[in-house]
Nucleic acid binder design. Structure first.
Length: 428
RNA sequence: GUGUCCAUAGUUCAGUUUGGUUAGAACGCCAGGUUGUGGCCCUGGAGGUCGUGGGUUCAAGUCCCACUGGACACCCCA
């Protein structure tokens, strides 16, 4: 085997693509119900966009980006996340000047050069939404509910919504001091990893999975208890809106989003069906990002969710059975006269919107029947010289095994009628 | 970037511990089972440089080393 897909990338093969189609269709329909419109941006951007937007010190920018120089020497990067790209587009195209609140969604591939593991790939796919232009917690709530509704629509059961507030430029610095002081007292006992974080981003120590670290930080001060008045009121309003919407959530003061741009609301949706990478969704508010990217300060909220992780949860919960695409009709030809007829008739069916397959491998009638069965064709038309002479064909219903005679000239009508008769009320 | 485990037909795996005749199974695939008909069943068939490259040995799928790839965990996150 000479060529292989790149480490951490995967093919989506014909046997599984219907699952992706189902997930994507469901996402679109819920997004549309909430009146979000799709935005598509290029797969790559100027490297500096991500460096500035996501934060120079984040892991994503520091060590995970697929960055390369193009032939003119420009540094480009395959997008590791979507928010910075959406904001760039928002600013570049003056979307905020056309309407005060812009609500967009996306479904797109992302790229991060990390070590692959369960639920983590180098090319992965996210869906997400951004609501740009509103600061009221109503819109934070809408974003949270929107993401949760998508999981419900997909049939995913066991997920939890965890919310927190990470404060703002006003309250975060003084909280950080308090936290740092507290952590200094236990610094010697912290894990090596956490000690490394102490210098860079002490907030993340709260997020540590190390049991000892968690115990040591049990009584550490949490951001949510040290919010300024504005942030505190925003957070409590959000909670009561969610409650009034009957959304179950937990407050988790240890949620710290890894990207620099978050302010106020931060939330995660997690599932215990995923293994170690248990986050289905991460999101929150980022009121400073547009300005950071040289736009006019614009409050924004959004979320990003992993499609592969949603699929994992669905598989774990057995939400898929053997669905596959199958043709309505397979034409099995007994002889060469039949084959000549088959290719013409197949085109007629197809042009009438009836899916149809024929044999291309010069196989025996028996083999053609086996093929029709394997493909789960609903009906098989059997055709040969006899039928051509008499102007009718045998039509076999592969589910019941019943076989009937249909005049050749009536065939298209016959199956169009079948379509309506078999699936009353069903349309699409 | 670190760690643990793994790598044999299209797929899932035996065989590796105690190196030794033509490397097996199941499923899948192909063809047949009398005259033009699927699924079940029966018969036959095709298909493997045993991840790659070195080494030890009279002899390596089996032992040793390196590399590549995979799985999972750390880290981080979707």
């Amino acid at each position: 085997m000479k060529f292989k897909s790149i480490k951490g990338t995967k093919d989506i093969l014909p046997d599984e693509s219907y699952r992706w189609q189902f997930v994507e269709q469901t996402i679109r329909s819920v997004m549309h119900a909430f009146n979000y419109r799709e935005i598509r941006t290029p797969v790559f951007e100027e490297t500096a966009l991500f460096a500035r937007g996501i934060g120079e010190l984040t892991d994503i920018v520091g060590k995970e980006m697929y960055t390369f120089l193009d032939r003119s020497g420009s540094s480009l990067t395959l997008k590791p996340e979507m928010t910075a790209a959406v904001m760039r587009s928002f600013i570049q195209n003056n979307l905020g000047e056309q309407q005060p609140l812009v609500k967009v969604y996306y479904i797109a591939p992302m790229f991060r050069q990390e070590r692959p593991q369960a639920g983590r790939l180098r090319q992965f796919h996210q869906f997400g939404a951004e609501a740009i232009g509103a600061s009221h917690p109503y819109i934070d709530a809408e974003i949270i509910v929107l993401s949760a509704e998508i999981y419900k629509a997909l049939g995913i059961k066991n997920f939890e919504i965890k919310i927190n507030s990470v404060g703002c430029e006003q309250c975060r610095p003084s909280y950080k001091d308090k936290l740092t002081k507290h952590l200094q007292s236990v610094y010697d006992k912290l894990s090596e990893e956490s000690r490394k974080r102490f210098g860079q981003n002490p907030l993340r120590i709260l997020d540590s999975k190390d049991e000892n670290d968690r115990a040591l930080t049990n009584d550490a001060p949490l951001m949510k208890d040290h919010l300024c008045e504005e942030c505190s009121s925003h957070f409590s309003q959000l909670r009561s809106i969610l409650t009034s919407l009957n959304i179950e959530y937990q407050i988790d003061g240890r949620i710290v989003r890894g990207l620099d741009y978050y302010t106020k609301t931060a939330y995660e949706i997690v599932s215990n069906d995923l293994g170690s990478q248990d986050a289905l969704t991460g999101g929150g508010r980022y009121d400073l990002l547009v300005k950071e990217l040289d736009g006019k300060q614009t409050p924004s909220v959004g979320f990003a969710a992993g499609i592969e992780r949603a699929l994992m949860a669905m598989e774990k919960q057995n939400l898929f059975s053997g669905e596959q695409f199958s043709p309505k009709i397979f034409i099995a030809a007994a002889d060469s006269a039949g084959k000549d007829w088959a290719i013409t008739q197949a085109m007629t069916f197809r042009q009438s919107g009836i899916s149809c397959e024929i044999d291309f491998l010069e196989r025996s009638l028996k083999s053609q029947m086996r093929e029709a069965d394997r493909q789960k064709a609903e009906f098989v038309i059997i055709i040969g010289e006899n039928e051509l002479r008499n102007g009718h064909v045998s039509v076999k219903n592969m589910k019941t095994g019943n076989q009937t005679i249909v005049m050749i000239k009536d065939l298209v009508n016959h199956f169009q009628y079948q379509e309506g008769k078999d699936e009353p009320g069903k349309k699409d």
